[in-house]
């Protein structure tokens, strides 16, 4: 077992005569490429792990992090604010221009009869002090966590506040109830029971009066 057989010596001698293929140029091109690459780097045909792989992973990781941050802050902006400006409006059947201020955040002008809820947020709507408390509470808590006992919560169906359509259309909405007013008005969806001290009739009258006033 430890000796080389005569036929094996013959085989060895024959193998010395094997003609080598003429691949010298292509092999040299590969060698040059690998020699030009930094040691430890991934050259052509090199099966080892190279430094480029972590580099690509780093870029991908940074892109993912940036994407997540953009998504997070974008979401936060859309969720944050304050739709409650409609609340006082509902309870104020009669308003004059002094109470109607354009929304400071959006810089857009509001329609007639709309009550500002930004700078003059703490100002009670005329004649309806009870509503003011609810409005303040509403401003302090996220939209989705309005107190269960809040009349707004009870009255308003769930609204997607981060909907761009809703935000875009907000100033154009009638003064009835911003929460209960979807982008496409559908009377069947509304289940307004009103805010404390305000009956269903007030809602209806409010919307109707404004419309009527405009037309006249």
């Amino acid at each position: 077992m430890n000796e080389i057989r005569p036929y094996e010596q013959l085989i060895a001698a024959k193998l010395e005569q094997v003609a080598v293929p003429d691949m010298s140029d292509s092999i040299w091109a590969g060698i040059e490429e690998q020699l030009d690459a930094p040691p430890g780097g991934r050259g052509a045909g090199d099966g080892g792990s190279g430094f480029r792989v972590p580099g690509w992973w780093g870029i991908v990781a940074v892109a993912v992090v940036v994407g997540l941050l953009l998504w997070y802050f974008g979401r936060k902006e859309t969720v944050a604010p304050p739709p409650p400006r409609a609340l006082p409006t509902q309870q104020a059947p009669a308003r004059d221009r002094e109470d109607s201020v354009g929304p400071a955040e959006s810089g857009r002008s509001v329609g007639p009869g709309r009550v500002e809820t930004g700078g003059s947020r703490n100002k009670p709507a005329r004649g309806i002090p009870a509503v003011q408390t609810d409005s303040l509470l509403f401003h302090r808590v996220p939209v989705d966590s309005v107190r269960v006992d809040s009349p707004v919560r009870q009255a308003a169906p769930p609204v997607k506040v981060d909907s761009p359509a809703l935000q875009r259309n907000r100033p154009m909405l009638p003064d009835v109830d911003l929460y209960s007013t979807p982008v496409v008005p559908s009377p069947g969806v509304r289940k307004h029971k009103g805010v404390k001290g305000i009956s269903d009739d007030d809602y209806k009258l409010s919307a109707g009066k404004d419309s009527a006033r405009k037309r006249n």
Partner: peptide, 13 residues
């Protein structure tokens, strides 16, 4: 050819 290329690179290095 693959073996040879890798062997020469190692040799030069």
């Amino acid at each position: 050819a693959d073996i040879l290329g890798h062997a020469f690179v190692k040799m030069f290095r």
